[in-house]
């Protein structure tokens, strides 16, 4: 009986200790973060090499959810399903203008830098009679997604070259993966190219670059990190830690390319050989060392989208700034 009582006492102690541990673990705040592929190396590092970030898992946790594109992440933020996510200027602008999304832009994943980085471009067949943007009149042009940010910038370039993007071309949605096949099969006269598909198409030859997004502006911003305003204002220290770790991740990604290739390969399952052909080289998008958002470029892009009617009203980038968190 005595043994039974002692065992019962020990079991109770163990249970209480376990409860205490669980309670302590539950005290660690969690950020719910949306992510996608490709080009979010900072997050991939935090997911796959958490030990490189002293605060992660001890001072705060991250619940990761992968999304297919930035638009669903706007919906998820609006419905309070996630706190932070990767965004593009257009999706954030539409979320703010049409859905009332209030958020802060806190770090930049990737953008373009004229002459130094890859720029999304439109390719034609080597022997195509299309020699200039104006030659696209009456032709079929491929785009990743109709109404996407990339489409918006392409439309601006067409306008600058005297073409009406609505009337003068036939637009076909090919997606990035299907773009090369559409061009080679003759389904489109000009196809949109992004990495790693551009690298693959170039290595086979038979294509020629017609124009790229750097023809419109030298510093297009593709993906940045945002957190909901209400969440950030309620937990500024927590978000500061997250931003600090994002920057640490950017430094690690840039400094240790070999490890970054492994990390990205683990997340995307793409073979290291394929990634080695472009990732973190001048064939890849630009990443700034401090991951600081380029607010001027974002504003310029938001203005372009408004001019095209893709945003219902002017969106001021100032509403997305909270400078004390990105110092």
């Amino acid at each position: 009986m005595k043994r039974f009582t002692r065992s019962l006492g020990l079991t109770a102690c163990a249970f209480l200790a376990l409860c205490g541990q669980t309670q302590a673990a539950d005290d660690i705040p969690t950020i719910r973060v949306g992510w996608s592929i490709p080009a979010e190396e900072m997050k991939y590092w935090m997911m796959r090499r958490p030990d490189a970030f002293p605060d992660l898992g001890k001072q705060y946790r991250i619940a990761w959810t992968q999304f297919q594109g930035t638009a669903p992440m706007v919906q998820a933020m609006l419905s309070d399903a996630i706190d932070c996510s990767s965004q593009a200027p257009l999706s954030l602008g539409q979320g703010a203008a049409s859905g009332g999304l209030q958020a802060y832009v806190l770090a930049q994943h990737v953008g373009e830098r004229k002459g130094e980085s890859f720029s999304v471009y439109w390719a034609v067949a080597e022997d195509s009679p299309v020699r200039s943007v104006a030659d696209l009149k009456g032709r079929t042009v491929g785009v990743n997604v109709y109404g996407s940010g990339v489409y918006g910038q392409m439309a601006m370039i067409l306008k600058q070259n005297g073409l009406d993007p609505e009337r003068d071309i036939r637009l076909v949605e090919t997606g990035f993966p299907g773009s090369e096949a559409a061009l080679r099969a003759g389904r489109v006269d000009a196809a949109v190219m992004n990495q790693p598909f551009a690298l693959r198409a170039e290595s086979k030859g038979g294509i020629r670059k017609l124009f790229s997004l750097t023809d419109l502006m030298p510093n297009t911003v593709h993906i940045f990190e945002v957190c909901r305003k209400d969440f950030t204002d309620a937990h500024p220290e927590l978000v500061k830690r997250y931003v600090k770790d994002l920057r640490t991740a950017m430094a690690l990604a840039r400094e240790d390319r070999a490890e970054t290739l492994k990390v990205v390969s683990e997340v995307t399952r793409a073979p290291v050989d394929l990634l080695d052909g472009y990732l973190l080289t001048d064939k890849d998008f630009a990443r700034s060392a401090d991951a600081r958002p380029d607010f001027e470029a974002i504003q310029q892009m938001l203005d372009q989208y408004q001019q095209l009617g893709m945003l219902p009203a002017k969106v001021d980038v100032a509403q997305f700034r909270r400078d004390d968190l990105i110092q």
């Binding site: 490709p38 992968q66 598909f197 693959r200 399952r269």
Partner: peptide, 23 residues
């Protein structure tokens, strides 16, 4: 397709995004 934390969709849609067609 839209959002996931883990699942067979990871393997399918990520492979599609990276043009890993055999996968």
């Amino acid at each position: 397709m839209i959002a996931r934390q883990s699942g067979a969709g990871d393997l399918l849609f990520n492979a599609l995004d990276m043009a890993l067609y055999p996968d």
